[in-house]
Structure formats: structure tokens, C-alpha cells
Amino acid sequence: MAGYVASSFIAPQPAPKGLRGRKWTVSRAAGLVMLLFWALLGIGIIMILVNGYDPEKIAKYAPKIGDGIIVTIELVAMSLVLGALISVPVAMGRMSASPLWGGIAFGYSYFFRGTPLLAQTFLVYYGAGQFVGFFKAIGLWALFRDAYFCAVFTFSLNTAAYQAEILAGAILAVPGGQRQAADSLGLRRSVTFWKIILPQALITALRPYGNEVILMIKASSIASIITVLDVMGQTRVAFSKTYDLQIYLWAAIIYLITVEVLRRLWELMEQRLTRHLKR
């Protein structure tokens, strides 16, 4: 029987090592440690929220923070829309060949982008108080006395500077051949701008505009420092009364969810609007 080939076959071997699970590398271990850290932090935060669960506190402060959310949304929406309106002439100035308009637009943009929003807000809110007589004379004192109005005013001017840069940059990024082609087709200047230049520019501007919306939501928390009761303002008031850190955690969760949802929505919108560019 010894002659049978089968009896001298090699015994079955275990599967090669590389195929059973992935190898342990430094980066894998580092990733696991970091994820473990996040998991511990997450559990810690959940424990703080669970241990600190206090129906009385929630009944008292949750509706206030809800009001704060509405104030934040209003503040951001108004600032962004007003800022978009102001940004149009500024962007035109940034693109104009005239040294006067170009210089004014550059100075405006440089000032608002080069100084902290907090300092600008103080300048408007406290600075207006120095010119009470003047504002009373022109009948605007009721507005400038109000912290909420001052916040909208400052944020609009601030975001207008950033939006003007986005708009001007996007319009200048449209290739010159587009304008020449439109000219050679005999289209009017206004038609060229509205139907050819602007649609292409807005696609380039979409992503920076989305970033600007998110930056504005985050920056709106600065309004809380001049006593506007937005999410951050309500949170600060509640914290100063309770000294309970979980209130800040609520605010953090609210901001994180808002920003993350907005970012995802913007990504979807961008994909939809640029689907003709996909190959």
C-alpha cells in the first residue's frame, strides 16, 4: 500500500498568516488608542449628563436655550442676508479699475477681515454710546441702544467683507474666454453677466459660501458677550446661576449638530448643482 501517492501527501497546512485578520501595525495601535480615548470621553460626557440629570433644571433652562436657538438662527440669517446685500457693491469695488472705489473697497475689506469680530462688536456697541446726541438727532438711538441690533449690524458688516472677497474671487475665476464667446455671439453686457458669468461664478463660490455660513453660526456666539441671549448667552446665564458644566455640554451638542447637519446638507446641494460637471 505504500506505493499509493495519497499516503505521501503533505499534511494539511494552516491558512497563511497574512489572511487571518490584519497585522498589528503601529498606526493600527495608535488608531485604537485614540478611538478608545474618544470612547472614554464620550462615556464620561454621557455619565455627566446622566448623573447630572435634574428634571427641575431641564424644565427651567431647556425652554430658555430653545429661545436662544431661535435668536441665534434669526441673528445668523439676518446678518448673512444683509451681508450679502452689502457685499455686492464691495465686490464691485474690489473688481473696479478705479483707484478710488478699489481703494475704499480694499480698505473696508482689510479692516473687517483684519480685526477681531469681538473688537468690532465692542466698537459698535460701546462706541455708539459715545455719540448718543448724534444718534438721537438722526433718530437712530433706539436701534444703537439695543445689543441685538448692534450684533446684527456688526456681523452684517463683517460677513459682507468676507462675502465680497468670495464673490469677487469667484467672478474673476471665470475664464476670460467665456466673456469673449458671449461678446462674439453679440450678447448684451447684462445678459452676459446674469446668464453666463454669474451662474459659473456661483458654482465656484458655493463651497466658500457654505464655509462662511458655518463660520457665522460659530461667530454669532460672540453676541452673548454684549448680553444678547442667543444659545451661548442663555447658556452663560444658566451656568452663572447653577455652576453646572452640563449646560455647556448641551450647548456644545447643539452647535455640533447644527454645524454638522448644515455641512452635510451643503455637500448634498453642491453635488446636485455640480452634477453636470461630473464624468
Binding site: 451661548m232 455640554l249 450647548a251 456644545a252 452647535y255 455640533l256 454645524v259
Partner: peptide, 10 residues
């Protein structure tokens, strides 16, 4: 995602 001010307070 967090406002800088909130990170600072946290």
C-alpha cells in the same frame, strides 16, 4: 464645529 468661545469656556 464648536464655536471658539465655547471651546474656551469648556
Amino acid at each position: 464645529g464648536l464655536p471658539e468661545l465655547l471651546t474656551l469656556f469648556l
